[in-house]
Amino acid sequence: MLNIADTLHRWCREQRPFALATIIGVSGSAPLPAGTSVAVDEDGTVVGSISGGCVEGQVYELCRQILHDQEAPRRAWFGYSDEDAFAVGLTCGGELDVLVQRIDPTAQPHLTRALSEAAGGRTAAVAQVVDGPANLLGGLVTLHGDGRMSGTDLDADTSRAVAEQAAALLRAGRTARSTLGGDAATCPERLTFLVHVAATRPRLLVFGAIDFAAALSEAGRFLGYHVTVCDARPVFATPARFPHAHEIVADWPHRYLRRTAVDERTAICVLTHDAKFDIPLLRLALDLPVGYIGAMGSRRTHTERLRLLREAGLTEEQLTRLRSPIGLDLGARTPEETAVSIAAEIIACTNSATGRPLSRTTGPIHRPAQPAGFPHPGPRFPAETRSRRGAAYTRTLQP
């Protein structure tokens, strides 16, 4: 739902009821991930998309029905049709599990606060019950960036249990599903909930004020990173040379890295290929819980760099985290091509992907996003629907 937080926040401020259809499970090659929503208000105004167009009409009508009749939340399932690729279904071959529910802002003021945080670019999360007892389906628990619960549709004990797991996913910065319950210690009834996370931008730290850094900072900004360019030479580290960076720092790289905030979503790119900068910086970087560390240089430079890092006391396990020479093998030569190569490796590393051509791989094209340390539980489609792929169908599942 946070993909349309701006509009939903405005509707909530205006106390305008709306129907919200959210992807709660994805299987196969679906165009959009779990957590993506479309909403329809009482005037028929629609915002968002959950399929790139192929099932929007069906979802729209279901939203209008639930909103008009004030029905309880309902799950709908959409699958692929081999017999008629233009029938209602996902022509891309994917399968979607969708939860449709009516939202009344006057009865759920805590949602307005969470949407305000998300729309303002601040960290927030909304945990949405997507499977469990009928009376809890669609229930919402909202959290602030510090993990503090700000409102809930559930009872106190269940809310605390949901908030505890949701806070961990919020810290990881990714939308994902989680399950709890089935025991007296948490919740007596088993619940599955989807945690919608609006996180601050991940960081891209680029060290070395060179032409390659300028191209990489532009690519990083395009990908949604908060980009910092750092160089010890003030004459080169200027806003004029790096107009796409959010922050320009003139300082020794390792000194800046020691005092700046990083997390598992941070990508560090060392483009200086100068040992007096690289070695102190990489000694520190390889001991930090960041998601990506890459260093530019030839294979000869890399071999010498590894020798110096070993002499500095780094272990082989730490050195395996270093991506050098940096980037994927695209035959890149220009700064712009090299930036694409590096950006592609960061994307592949972030998503635990191979970086191989899709034409040389098998299986689903779109993989579920996996927050660091949190396995993705995946969609839970009924067995009878999974066995019927190849038939044209759209099923509505009652809770």
Rank of each mutant, 00 (worst) to 15 (best):
D251A: 15
T186Q: 15
L140D: 00
L205T: 08
A118G: 09
A114Q: 08
D69M: 06
A383D: 14
P105W: 11
S159P: 08
G145T: 01
T362M: 12
P243N: 11
T354P: 05
R265D: 06
R389M: 00
A199S: 13
V206N: 09
E61Q: 12
I66R: 09
I365A: 14
R283Q: 15
Q15G: 08
A344Q: 05
V46D: 03
D97F: 01
V100I: 15
L322Q: 09
V290L: 04
E384V: 08
F18W: 11
E317G: 14
S352C: 08
T36R: 09
A312L: 13
A245R: 03
D274E: 15
Y60V: 02
G25Y: 04
R160Q: 14
Q165G: 06
A167G: 09
E164D: 11
A85Y: 00
V26L: 11
E164G: 05
F18R: 06
L137R: 00
H68Q: 13
T238L: 11
L62C: 10
G120Y: 08
A214I: 00
T266H: 07
A163M: 08
A209Q: 05
Q70G: 08
R283P: 01
F374K: 03
Q318C: 10
G79S: 13
A87G: 08
D211G: 04
L288C: 09
V262W: 07
A19Q: 04
S29H: 03
T266A: 06
A168Y: 00
L204I: 04
E189D: 13
H254L: 03
R102Y: 02
E316P: 00
P133A: 13
T179H: 07
H226E: 15
T7V: 14
A339P: 02
D82H: 02
S324I: 01
H302C: 13
P371H: 02
M1A: 14
H302W: 08
E311D: 15
V26I: 11
T315R: 10
A156G: 06
S29M: 03
R395A: 14
S387Q: 12
T394K: 02
F222S: 14
L257C: 07
V340F: 11
A332D: 09
G173N: 02
R258N: 12
A156I: 11
M149D: 01
A163K: 06
C349D: 14
R386H: 10
V26P: 00
Q70F: 02
A343S: 15
Q70W: 01
D131K: 11
A184R: 12
L322P: 07
A348E: 04
L306V: 15
P399W: 02
G208F: 13
H366R: 15
A107F: 07
G57F: 05
L96K: 00
A344G: 08
C230Y: 01
P253V: 07
S49R: 07
L328Q: 02
L111D: 10
T228H: 06
I66D: 01
G57N: 10
P377R: 14
R177A: 12
G313T: 10
H302E: 14
G57E: 13
A369L: 13
Q398E: 14
F242Y: 04
T396C: 05
L204R: 03
L328W: 04
E95A: 07
R388D: 04
G355M: 03
I24N: 04
H144L: 12
F242S: 01
E117I: 01
A167S: 13
E304T: 15
L8N: 07
I279F: 11
S298T: 14
